[in-house]
């Protein structure tokens, strides 16, 4: 019975990790930008959900529809006005730039929202349900379903839509995409906007589950990073696979070796992957 509980915990947590990582993975894969603002976008999304719930009593399920366009616009503008200027520079330049932007956004949040921890508590609370002898909180379950839905939508967008095909084309071969008439700067901006929108939506979902504070942004960023390396860059299924693997290792490790070793295990796994399978679980070799 405890094994069932561990497995279900891991499945739920893994989907949430995937949701945290997917926007990060998209931006890294398509733009080759390690987007360090990602964690702060998630936190900003969480504050948006918290604010809407406190002031308008708008449930986080609807807050997603506010967050997605808002964050898309924010990401699009940041890419168009700032990041596109240095996009062709070595990766260290874009890394430094997003690091700086992250400092600004994170400290602005500390300034305006203070560093106090807040919690979005739904009233009445959603409670928990029993599945096959294991207890699962309903809010996590809904967040998981939403996370999977968002992931599916992104998958469809990349596969079926014109703009999605253009994003994939730029990712695979930038020069060939230009020759085919793709306007690369706008594709970059759309991809970054999508990444930001996914981060914002992830933030809305995380608001239900984790305490909210600007200081948690680095924890989200760290998870996103590990998930991307484990799963492989730029692909939807990679983020999902990486998230599930990470959660599974953490849950099993923390049950049998104690919670203090869960982090050790996940980073050990990261190192093993970097050495033996740098392209990740579902990534393709030599994709760069």
């Amino acid at each position: 019975m405890q094994a069932m509980q561990i497995l279900i915990n891991a499945l739920v947590l893994g989907s949430l990790y995937a949701c945290i990582a997917i926007g990060f993975s998209l931006v890294w894969g398509v733009l080759n930008v390690i987007n360090l603002i990602h964690g702060s976008f998630i936190v900003l999304g969480a504050y948006l959900a918290f604010g809407l719930y406190q002031s308008l009593h708008l449930s986080p399920w609807y807050a997603i529809f506010v967050a997605a366009p808002l964050f898309f616009a924010l990401g699009y503008v940041i890419q168009r006005l700032i990041l596109n200027r240095v996009i062709t520079a070595p990766v260290l330049v874009t890394l430094t730039l997003t690091f700086g932007l992250d400092l600004i956004l994170n400290n602005a949040m500390i300034y305006f929202f203070t560093a106090d921890y807040r919690k979005l508590t739904l009233s009445p609370p959603l409670g928990s349900v029993s599945i096959a002898g294991a207890v699962v909180p309903v809010d996590r379950l809904i967040a998981t379903a939403t996370a999977l839905l968002l992931t599916g939508l992104l998958y469809l967008l990349l596969r079926r839509s014109r703009i999605g095909r253009a994003i994939v084309a730029v990712r695979l071969d930038r020069d060939a995409a230009v020759l085919m008439g793709v306007h690369v700067p706008s594709i970059y901006a759309v991809a970054f906007g999508l990444g930001a929108a996914l981060a914002g939506c992830a933030g809305v979902l995380m608001a239900l589950i984790f305490p909210i504070s600007p200081l948690t942004s680095s924890a989200y960023l760290g998870k996103a990073f590990v998930v991307c390396v484990l799963g492989g860059l730029g692909s939807v299924s990679g983020a999902l696979a990486g998230g599930l693997l990470l959660a599974l290792v953490e849950s099993v490790g923390s049950t049998y070796l104690g919670p203090s070793h869960a982090t050790t295990l996940s980073f050990l796994l990261l190192i093993i992957f970097l050495i033996l399978r740098p392209q990740g679980l579902v990534g393709r070799k030599g994709f760069e």
């Binding site: 924890a219 760290g222 919670p259």
Partner: peptide, 10 residues
């Protein structure tokens, strides 16, 4: 549990 642990379900 380690500093910075996000999830304690296990």
């Amino acid at each position: 549990y380690a500093i910075g642990t996000l999830d304690h379900s296990a």
